[in-house]
């Protein structure tokens, strides 16, 4: 989980305290017949300890943005100082759980890759499954779970390695208001522990609980402003170094 796969060209140095820095990022999907310009020039800086909500209509490029931030994909153009060398936890919009193994084993996977010992894995997975309210579903396969339950397994998996940065794509999309709120509470708690969070959501009510809202439209950042609804960034960073 720790170090991200490969180094790429177009990298720009991150200054201290900067977790994500994007400059003039473009992403074009070439499907052969048509070229889709998903991102058309994104400039974005996220500091350590920030809680950023990304909003925007469907197809605006939010997921694409998250994949690039997480180094899971390569930008067509532009500079990127990314979350490389930090632990990043992903919650995918489509969950991306491995269907042939149990919920427990899915959550355990990053710990396996991270070389965590058996006993610790057991404890950690149990704790996380409990946190997302699925203590009684550990031995279920993803196909035996509801959409919201799968989403919660995906969240537990993202948090398994205690990541410095959590990138979550619609983590509450399949949840009712109350469980969605619970998950958002979980994120707030992580943020309070000093983690950097970037959460994509459709739900403006949830977005307003973040410290900063970035609105994406047609592959461009339309709006980027603090919400003032949570403790200010400066405070957060001061108290957690």
């Amino acid at each position: 989980m720790s170090v991200l796969p490969r180094r790429r060209n177009g990298e720009i140095p991150a200054t201290d305290g900067v977790v994500i820095r994007m400059a003039g990022i473009r992403k074009v999907y070439d499907t052969g017949k048509v070229k889709v310009e998903a991102l058309r020039g994104i400039d974005l800086v996220v500091h350590r300890g920030e809680f950023v909500a990304v909003v925007g209509p469907s197809g605006s490029g939010k997921s694409t943005l998250m994949n690039l931030v997480g180094c899971l994909d390569t930008p067509t153009e532009g500079g990127l100082a990314d979350a490389r060398n930090r632990r990043v936890g992903f919650v995918f919009q489509s969950f991306n759980l491995l269907p042939q193994i149990t919920a427990f084993e899915n959550v355990e996977m990053p710990l396996l890759f991270g070389g965590v010992g058996k006993r610790e894995r057991q404890a950690r997975v149990t704790e996380l499954m409990d946190r997302v309210g699925l203590a009684d579903r550990m031995e279920h396969r993803p196909t035996e779970l509801s959409g919201g339950q799968m989403q919660r397994v995906a969240i537990a998996r993202a948090l398994a390695m205690n990541p410095d940065v959590v990138l979550a794509d619609e983590p509450t999309g399949n949840l009712d208001t109350s469980s969605g709120g619970d998950i958002m509470g979980l994120f707030e708690e992580l943020w309070r522990q000093g983690r950097t969070l970037v959460v994509i959501t459709h739900d403006m009510a949830l977005a307003r609980r973040a410290g900063r809202i970035v609105e994406v439209r047609d592959g461009l950042i339309l709006r980027d402003e603090p919400t003032g609804s949570v403790a200010t960034l400066r405070e957060a960073r001061a108290s957690h170094g």
């Binding site: 989980m1 796969p5 992903f90 991306n96 996977m109 990053p110 890759f113 991270g114 390695m161």
Partner: peptide, 15 residues
């Protein structure tokens, strides 16, 4: 797909 997911979860190509 499985390989992609595992890579995203921190697996090394070698493993």
């Amino acid at each position: 797909r499985e390989i992609g997911i595992k890579m995203a979860l921190g697996a090394r190509a070698g493993s």
